[in-house]
Nucleic acid binder design. Structure first.
Length: 897
RNA sequence: GGGAGCAUAGCUCAGUUGGUUUAGAGCAUCUGCCUUACAAGCAGAGGGUCCGCGGUUCGAACCCGUGUGCUCCCACCA
């Protein structure tokens, strides 16, 4: 079949993915081989995959494919996360805008029906994207965090932890999201720097107890606040007890402006005398500090906000209006009434809901909490002991440690419908039990409260999505719902977790906790953190900026392999990566390079007559004959060693999770060593053909480099593997064999050959000698025999009509020094020696400078005394080498003049 | 306020116990090539005060201190 001019990904990608599926290569079952297991960080079913996912999935697929080709029983579990709040927000939004439905008018069941439809739709899009990218996941194990068994697992764990006394229910100050109308955990709040205003407001002194004002005292005080809309919730004002300016207020009250409510003046060390006016309004319902001071001083709590962020009845004024609108109105009213003393610009950090991006309100609310201290110790030890390795560790070990040492209780309840409903049952008086179902609950009511057959109502709330996600590496193998089953025993602990550094606390730390609690063992051995994908200007990808490309579009334009290449070539572990489509372009070019190498080899196959009839060839390439030995054999022997060198290096790099460097190494092996050197070296002259031996070697090496590249670029490698030969086996499962150490001498000989060729080509360029112009090469060397195997290649690559050793040419030849050898190039055309003289002078300059630094070292007594002998030996050698070269160049210069 | 990380070519980055040269790669740039696999290519070249300063050392891009500039995480000062 005729090969297309360029590689066309669309022709191969779906075909091979389908083939791999049909052959069940992705499916894993426990057997006697060692397992290599990865659980996918389940994408949220909130939408489609973005570039961050692309990077993550690619990394995982590379690791999995590499392991699959290295003798492991690989299992990559795909799935998705219901993402409670994030998805619910999306569904609510969709209902409102697309169907004109208000969530408040739906029953829980009706809403969940829509939510499941949403999940079905987006879950499937996500899965198809994962497939398009080539990910070799075991689809038979696809798990969703609200699957029946998974749902049960979450409930079971909650009940278990409750019975262990690790879960409690109570009123605490929590973060409230007024848009989603739910509590949030501390980790779901993002703090951003915001320039706001500090308003200085007058509070009249009420003088309620009739005591006279102190001398010089005013009839009002001034208090600074950023949130004037909260003043109606004030239940005291507070000064530092050591602050003499306010001592006179002891026992007095002040009036809250606008509503003229009298509140006491109290004193507490918490107040900083030097900030603002040194006096603080206390609003226990809406600030965590105020709440704590309130507790200490027994202050009442006046909650002036409704759950949706509007003012409540308790606020007395502006009831039902939105909080930020009210802020403006209150400032205006204060100004009109002369109660606003001044405003100043002020930068502060404000908490935003990670999911709805609205300003979070501190609010007192009854929620479920999980005690975390008990979990922190074992989870910390796994990492500090090195039992779990984090990559890159220098960056994250400290962060991990800090969080665990300062961990706070986890608010696990959410006022949402999308998620696992909390299995707590309440009677009409508010007594409750925790039970799997209502029947069980009735029984417990009987046992605990001696109440029989009362009307029970299940808790309306659901769990934080992370309260299900933390069980992921266990329950994808049903480890909670059927402990000790064959899968969990075989696959747990998993090998590596690949995820974003932004969820180290949300998820990574908590999975380790759950693993220790429920399996008594870590959930994974390594954690590989990828950085954030930004655009090439370093900005975060976002819909608003329009800089977040569509994965399927990219695959359509460049092909999945090129997308994988592009994202991997620029992604050092743990650092943010700047995504630039030009790297995908590079990937596309790389595909094409491979494709063209294939075309070349197919052409040879046709010429050698090996394609159909298996004829051996009659003619051999010029590079292939020399006195009975095949010198194609040098090219072949050299490449074999170079290949071994790269194989070992890539092996090491992947083991260290330095995937980007691994790809660069492979890229260079293929483009430079295989295509630019090897294929050119063994390429026959026009009209001639290659020997069977050389042809076979070229094919064999092609297969080898395809194998190394396969984990990174699975589609094109599989395609070419099959284009090279008709075969029944597939590259995806081709096993790597043990790699022998490369022969250093051979590698050096190859480098020497390359250097000579490059130097001569440079000289051709500089002296304007056309490639077609033949030249006569003279080599001054002490190692003539080393050229035995190089000569044929050399003369072909530089188009030499003759090569002579240790014979001096006539005047007018170009002189080049390569290593410790002197080359003379003689041609039939007139040469202007100026440029080569310049080159020699430049080389001379460099060498003299270099010699100088070496000399300085060697003439330093301290160096000679202290340095290691081998270092000194090396310096001596550098010195003599440099001297030798200098002499050679000086002689050459003399000859020119 | 506390902590972490980073700063090397125009850009993105390597540089793994301090000594293989006066520091490397890819991309970009420049020069020459429509050479029969590949112009999405080939051949070649140029390009750096390793952020500043000080120190340790025979020797520093690398270790220490300090300054500057970025980035991120954590934290309850209105």
């Amino acid at each position: 079949m005729e090969l297309s001019k360029n590689y066309i990904p669309a022709n191969t990608e779906d075909k091979w993915y389908k083939h791999w599926l049909e052959k069940n290569y992705f499916i894993s079952n426990p057997d006697e081989r060692p397992s290599y297991t990865v659980v996918i960080p389940p994408p949220n079913v909130t939408g489609v995959l973005h570039m961050g996912h692309t990077l993550n999935e690619t990394v995982q697929d590379i690791l999995i494919r590499k392991a699959r080709m290295s003798g492991f029983n690989t299992c990559w579990v795909p799935g998705s996360d219901h993402a409670s709040i994030a998805t619910e927000a999306k569904v609510v939004d969709m209902l409102k805008h697309e169907k004109g439905i208000d969530k408040n008018n739906l029953s829980r069941e009706e809403f969940l029906k829509y939510a499941f439809e949403w999940k079905e739709k987006y879950g499937n899009i996500i899965y198809s994207q994962i497939a398009k990218l080539g990910c070799s996941v075991d689809w038979s194990r696809t798990t969703f965090t609200m699957d029946d068994h998974y749902y049960k697992a979450v409930i079971k764990v909650f009940i278990d932890l409750y019975n262990k006394g690790l879960i409690y229910r109570g009123a605490r100050m929590i973060n409230w999201d007024p848009a989603a109308k739910t509590a949030l955990s501390d980790e779901e709040v993002e703090h951003k720097d915001v320039t706001g205003k500090l308003y200085y407001i007058k509070y009249e002194i009420a003088s309620s107890n009739g005591s006279p004002n102190a001398p010089g005292a005013l009839n009002h005080i001034v208090i600074a606040t950023q949130r004037p809309e909260t003043i109606m919730g004030d239940t005291a004002v507070c000064a530092n007890p050591g602050d003499e300016r306010y001592a006179y207020l002891n026992g007095q009250s002040v009036l809250v402006p606008l509503i003229n409510k009298a509140v006491p003046v109290i004193f507490d060390d918490y107040v900083d005398k030097d900030f603002g006016t040194g006096i603080l309004k206390i609003t226990p319902a809406h600030d965590i500090n105020d709440y704590n001071i309130g507790l200490k001083h027994n202050l009442p709590v006046v909650d002036t906000l409704n759950s949706d962020g509007t003012m409540s009845e308790a606020a007395q004024i502006y009831v039902g209006e939105e909080r930020f609108a009210v802020r403006k109105k209150i400032v205006e009213e204060l100004r009109e009434k002369g109660l606003l003393v001044k405003e100043e610009e002020y930068t502060t950090r404000i908490g935003y809901s990670q999911r709805t991006n609205v300003v979070v309100e501190p609010k007192i609310s009854t929620q479920w909490f999980l005690r975390m201290k008990e979990f922190a110790q074992p989870a910390l030890k796994e990492v500090t002991s090195g039992n779990i390795s984090i990559h890159p560790g220098d960056k994250f070990n400290a962060t991990y440690k800090y969080w665990l040492e300062n961990v706070k209780d986890w608010c696990i309840s959410r006022q949402l419908w999308w998620g696992q409903q909390i299995p707590a049952w309440y009677d009409e008086e508010g007594k409750f039990v925790v039970a799997e179902n209502e029947a069980e609950a009735q029984k417990l009511f009987n046992d605990q409260y001696s109440i029989v057959n009362t009307r029970l109502k299940q808790d309306e709330d659901v769990f934080d999505t992370w309260f299900s996600a933390w069980l992921w590496p266990i329950e994808v193998f049903n480890g909670i719902t059927s402990p000790g089953n064959a899968d969990i025993k075989y696959y747990y602990p998993t090998s590596v977790l690949v995820t974003g550094q932004d969820i180290i606390f949300f998820w990574v730390a908590r999975m380790i906790m759950a693993g220790m609690e429920y399996m008594g063992e870590k959930p994974f051995s390594d954690v590989y953190f990828t950085g954030m994908v930004r655009d090439k200007m370093g900005r975060k990808m976002s819909k608003q900026l329009g800089n977040s490309p569509d994965l399927l579009e990219l695959i359509k334009e460049y092909g999945a392999d090129a997308v994988r290449f592009g994202i991997m070539i620029s992604s050092p572990a743990g650092n943010d990566l700047l995504f630039d489509e030009s790297s995908l372009e590079q990937g596309k070019h790389f595909n094409n390079k491979l494709w063209n190498a294939l075309k070349l080899i197919k052409m040879w196959a046709a010429k050698t007559g090996q394609d159909d009839n298996g004829h051996s060839l009659e003619e051999t390439s010029r590079a292939n004959t020399k006195s009975g030995t095949t010198t194609g054999s040098f090219a072949i022997a050299w490449f074999q060693n170079r290949l071994n060198e790269v194989q070992l290096e890539v092996e090491k790099l992947i083991k260290e999770f330095r995937l980007s460097e691994g790809l660069k190494t492979i890229y260079s092996l293929i483009w430079d060593d295989y295509c630019s050197w090897l294929l050119e070296w063994i390429k026959p002259e026009y009209g001639k053909s290659v020997s069977k031996e050389v042809y076979d070697a070229a094919v064999y090496f092609f297969e080898e480099i395809l194998q190394i590249l396969h984990p990174y670029m699975p589609f094109i490698t599989e395609e070419i593997y099959h284009q090279l030969k008709d075969r029944d086996d597939d590259l995806i499962v081709k096993q790597f064999e043990e790699t022998p150490l490369p022969n250093e001498e051979m590698l050096q000989l190859g480098s020497k050959l390359k250097d000579i060729i490059t130097s001569i080509r440079d000289a051709r360029n500089k002296n304007n000698i056309k490639p077609k112009e033949t030249l006569r090469l003279y080599i001054e060397t002490t190692e003539v025999s080393s050229y035995d195997s190089l000569q044929q290649i050399l003369s072909k690559q530089i188009n030499a009509e003759s090569i002579k050793f240790n014979t001096t040419p006539a005047d007018g030849a170009i002189t080049i020094v390569v290593g410790k050898e002197k080359l003379f190039i003689e041609t039939n055309i007139e040469i202007d020696l100026k440029s080569q003289k310049e080159k020699l002078l430049k080389d001379l300059d460099y060498l003299k400078g270099f010699l100088n630094t070496v000399d300085k070292k060697l003439s330093n007594d301290k160096f000679v005394q202290n340095a290691k002998p081998e270092v000194i030996e090396l310096e001596r050698k550098k010195k003599s080498d440099a001297q030798e070269k200098i002499t050679m160049i000086e002689q050459s210069l003399l000859a020119i003049n």
